[in-house]
């Protein structure tokens, strides 16, 4: 349906995508919107290079970065939870970065994503400005059936629909469940969809996602937009689970350095008369256990089950002038560069 052609930029001798504007595009607002999109700093957003004008100077099309290969519509579903999360993560991250810059994509779907030759996920085809005074068939909700959040079908008192970044979160949920199954669940195809849909459940997938991840992804498909998580929360949770077993903590205690990781997951630390605790790695986080005596983490009373933040100082003993011992813990991990 989209009128787009691969062309060669003869100046730089490289392929570009030249795309005709969709019917009903509001050309007056288009340039303002394209300019606003330029502020997004994300490796996941396709670059717009130029516009194509006709003899009257009217914009007829866009010149974009050309991405080789197929979009994600017919991608074979990954078979493992890890590969599935590796697929979801850059999508969530890209949408989160779009939201960080105050934009709503408005047309998140499998057809609008591709991996480039370097394996970097690219998101394209923002739902750009529509001329609401044009032909009646273009009025109303913007988007693609199946990916449209239920609130988009509810007209406000002014006859227009209002929406937030939560529509992208919903569309991400639809994209994710469709990628996991290979097809869009029938339960999401209603106009509007009837939620929750029994066949759109991240808990029952053959890839067996970690329960915390499945729960969060299910919340993306909540009927109530305010019940959906922020896209950045989803990206963070996915990256945490992608690093399962790969975290490392450097524990500095009495002038020595101890390394905790998946093979050496726990350390008992104690100073007689001051306090004692155990630091244990559960594959995702470093937790405090067996806390006794006077133990403070970053100046907070320590407790069993407390999660060690990225970097902290644990103090054993009562505050000055008592004798105290400092333990530094610094957590690091390989960077997720997907």
């Amino acid at each position: 349906m989209s009128d787009a052609a691969k062309c060669i930029d003869t100046h730089l001798d490289r392929p570009v995508l030249v795309k005709a504007l969709k019917e009903g595009t509001d050309k007056k607002r288009l340039l303002d919107e394209i300019r606003a999109l330029q502020k997004i700093r994300s490796k996941h957003v396709v670059q717009i290079y130029d516009v194509v004008r006709d003899e009257d100077g009217e914009i007829q099309g866009l010149v974009e970065e050309y991405i080789e290969g197929a979009d994600l519509t017919y991608l074979n579903p990954p078979t493992t939870a890890e590969d599935l999360m590796k697929l979801f993560y850059p999508i969530a991250k890209g949408i989160a970065e779009i939201h960080d810059h105050g934009h709503i994509h408005r047309d998140v779907k499998r057809q609008n994503m591709k991996f480039d030759g370097e394996g970097c996920l690219k998101i394209f085809d923002f739902g750009l400005a529509r001329d609401e005074t044009a032909d009646a068939s273009t009025i109303g909700p913007i988007g693609t059936p199946g990916y449209m959040a239920p609130e988009l079908f509810v007209a406000g008192t002014n006859g227009k629909t209002s929406f937030t970044t939560a529509i992208d979160v919903y569309a991400f949920g639809v994209t994710a469940i469709s990628l996991a199954r290979g097809t869009m669940p029938n339960g999401l195809k209603g106009i509007p969809p009837k939620l929750p849909a029994a066949d759109a459940d991240f808990n029952g997938l053959p890839q067996s996602l970690p329960p915390a991840v499945a729960t969060l992804l299910n919340q993306c498909l909540a009927a109530d937009p305010t019940a959906r998580p922020k896209m950045s929360e989803v990206a963070e949770e996915l990256s945490l689970h992608l690093l399962h077993g790969q975290h490392r903590a450097f524990v500095g205690f009495s002038g020595r350095l101890y390394v905790l990781d998946a093979t050496h997951p726990a350390a008992d630390l104690s100073v007689a008369g001051q306090g004692a605790l155990r630091v244990r790695y559960d594959g995702l986080r470093f937790l405090l256990e067996n806390v006794t005596g006077h133990v403070a983490l970053n100046n907070q009373q320590a407790f069993n089950g407390m999660v060690v933040p990225g970097s902290c100082v644990i103090m054993l003993g009562l505050p000055y002038p008592s004798a105290r011992t400092a333990i530094t813990i610094d957590v690091s991990h390989p960077e997720v560069t997907l």
């Binding site: 970053n298 100046n299 933040p309 990225g310 970097s311």
Partner: peptide
């Protein structure tokens, strides 16, 4: 990094 009272560097 977040901390009570002060953050941590």
């Amino acid at each position: 990094y977040p901390g009570e009272g002060s953050d941590r560097a």
